[in-house]
Simulated assay, not measured.
Amino acid sequence: MILTEFVSNAAAMLFVTIDPIGLAPVFLALTAGASSTQRRTIAIKALAISATTLLAFLFAGHSLLKVMGISQPAFQVAGGLLLFIIAVEMVFEHRQKRKAESAEKASDEAADLSTVAVFPLAIPLIAGPATISAVILLAGEAPGMTGSMALLAVLAAVLGGVFLVFLLSDKISSYLNPTIQMIITRLFGVLLAALSVQFVADGIMSLFNI
């Protein structure tokens, strides 16, 4: 896989699985009643925790697979199927409902706003199973050291976008009415479905040496 193709695939997959725009209304719901300073603190904490989690899987994910006796092609197939399920949920609007339910649950249970940064913002809304799977899969397909560095840059850019969305969440939500959100979510879902099918196909070909 050439570098430019890898970077474009990585950017699309990470942007779709993390879904920065879709997190804006969830962040607003979770931080209802918080001041701008508190929201900034929560955003920084959530990004720090999710970034640490994703970097750990990016660098140690393959070692973990080896310890568990899981081959890269097998993980490609499993991860691709997981991403496909997420894509189906996005197309049929189930994912946003689950995010809203997680936000409501956290709002009911959290006595301190700072705990919201850990759950559900950092985990599982930003660094969830789909994103972790995507990071491990992309790390395995990265073309050499240059590809790994490019993947780090893409991940940093997407997480930076999440932070920006959090800071501007009130303005973004005012422009994104339910219809626009639905259109964006379904378009991203179709894109993620296509990428996940490609991962499954590549994994099957590697498994059977086709």
Rank of each mutant, 00 (worst) to 15 (best):
A156S: 10
A153F: 09
E141R: 13
A153P: 07
D108F: 15
V118N: 09
V154R: 00
D108E: 15
M145A: 13
A157T: 14
V154I: 04
L159P: 02
G144W: 05
T115A: 13
V116H: 08
L152V: 07
P129M: 04
A153I: 12
T131V: 09
I123E: 09
A127L: 06
L164E: 02
V154E: 00
A134P: 05
L137V: 06
A111K: 14
L125W: 02
A157M: 10
I123H: 10
A111P: 08
V158T: 01
S107F: 11
D108M: 15
A117D: 13
T146W: 13
V154M: 00
M145V: 12
P129D: 03
L138H: 03
G140R: 00
A122Y: 03
A130H: 01
F119Q: 13
P124Q: 10
L137T: 01
G147N: 06
A111I: 13
S148F: 08
A106K: 08
F119M: 09
D112N: 15
T146F: 15
L113R: 12
G147L: 09
L121G: 05
A156G: 04
G140T: 00
E141P: 04
D112M: 13
L164M: 11
I136R: 05
L164S: 10
A156V: 06
L138S: 03
I126H: 02
E141G: 08
G160C: 01
A110Q: 09
G160S: 06
V162F: 03
E104V: 11
A150H: 08
I123N: 05
A127V: 05
V135G: 01
L137P: 00
V162C: 11
A150Q: 03
P143N: 07
A106Q: 11
D112F: 13
V154K: 00
T115P: 03
G140S: 06
P143H: 06
A134L: 06
A156P: 04
G128F: 04
A139P: 05
M149K: 11
F119S: 14
L113Q: 12
K105R: 15
A111H: 15
L152M: 09
S107N: 14
A150C: 10
A122P: 07
S114E: 15
A150T: 08
V118M: 12
P143A: 10
A139C: 05
A139L: 04
M145D: 09
M149E: 08
G161P: 04
D108N: 15
F163D: 00
I132Y: 00
V135H: 05
T115S: 14
L125R: 01
F163Q: 07
